[in-house]
């Protein structure tokens, strides 16, 4: 009996946690008149359900373009940051070289500094470079992740030196050592780091909002927030919700695909870090 209530409590909590999703999905199928009239959907009148929000979203707004932009920016940034971080992490974990100590110290000191402090100076820099409105201004600064490097450095320390030696004896270049020996060993961590990074980029708002000034170049978070406006002007509620749902979906799909990798990697990273 106690176990029954234990599960009842757990599952109702889970239900509460999932309710906003259910609400969101319903909201996208409600017409303008029904949006506030029904909490979820007019269940007994399926005739009132509508796809018009989605149609309006793609016809009236450059939503497809925002989607493409978001995919491009997030993927490009993630690929670059994972590659660079694993390379640098490998070097820091497995080699001795000059300036390594001082580099580590400089990196450590910047770890705790919130990036917001750089927003004004970075904006000035982008003006000077003529990168306002360009994706380079988002992707390149985003490719610097001190956190990622430390993560990879910790993981790569576990790569046995004997394996690297054996590789060298077999005539592998240092680059191939990284690619064929080190990377497969830290594979689970790559999965988690990739997903975390992708999510952060996908949802990133503050910096792109400063850089992207042309509606056609917007990413999803920027485009959608600009659909919401002051109370004095029209807010297309259902359309906004449809856009929000479609913006969340890619991350959810990605998570489903990588769930196992992700949770394993997340946990190992945290317990060590």
């Amino acid at each position: 009996m106690r176990r029954f209530f234990y599960h009842l409590a757990l599952f109702s909590l889970a239900l509460i946690s999932l309710t906003p999703f259910a609400w969101l999905v319903c909201a996208t199928f409600k017409s303008k008149d029904d949006f506030f009239a029904y909490t979820f959907l007019p269940w007994n009148q399926p005739g009132r359900w509508t796809l018009s929000n989605y149609r309006f979203l793609f016809q009236h707004y450059p939503f497809a373009g925002w989607l493409i932009n978001s995919v491009f920016v997030s993927c490009a940034q993630t690929v670059i940051v994972v590659t660079l971080s694993s390379l640098a992490g490998f070097a820091l974990a497995k080699y001795e070289f000059r300036f390594k100590k001082s580099l580590l110290i400089v990196m450590l000191t910047t770890m705790l500094i919130p990036y917001q402090v750089m927003l004004p100076s970075m904006q000035l820099m982008m003006y000077r470079l003529g990168w306002i409105n360009s994706y380079a201004a988002i992707i390149l600064p985003g490719a610097v992740s001190v956190f990622g490097i430390f993560l990879f450095m910790q993981a790569m320390k576990l790569v046995p030196d004997e394996l690297l030696h054996a590789g060298r004896v077999d005539g592998c270049s240092e680059f191939r050592l990284w690619w064929e020996i080190a990377l497969p060993i830290v594979r689970p961590m790559i999965g988690a780091y990739t997903l975390l990074n992708f999510m952060a980029n996908w949802n990133s708002f503050l910096w792109p909002q400063i850089i992207l000034q042309n509606e056609r170049k917007y990413t999803l978070p920027i485009g959608l927030t600009n659909m919401m406006s002051l109370p004095e002007f029209q807010t297309p509620y259902g359309v906004l919700m449809a856009g929000t749902l479609l913006s969340i979906l890619p991350v959810v799909i990605l998570f489903f695909i990588m769930q196992r990798d992700f949770i394993a990697g997340l946990a190992s990273g945290a317990v060590k870090g």
Partner: peptide, 26 residues
């Protein structure tokens, strides 16, 4: 030779190329 950064990165690389082409050609 397999892609050792993992399938997700490979997929993202391809997506980058495809969407990048779309962005540039737009």
């Amino acid at each position: 030779m397999s892609f050792h950064l993992g399938k997700p990165i490979l997929v993202m690389l391809i997506l980058t190329a495809v969407t990048g082409a779309a962005v540039i050609s737009r």
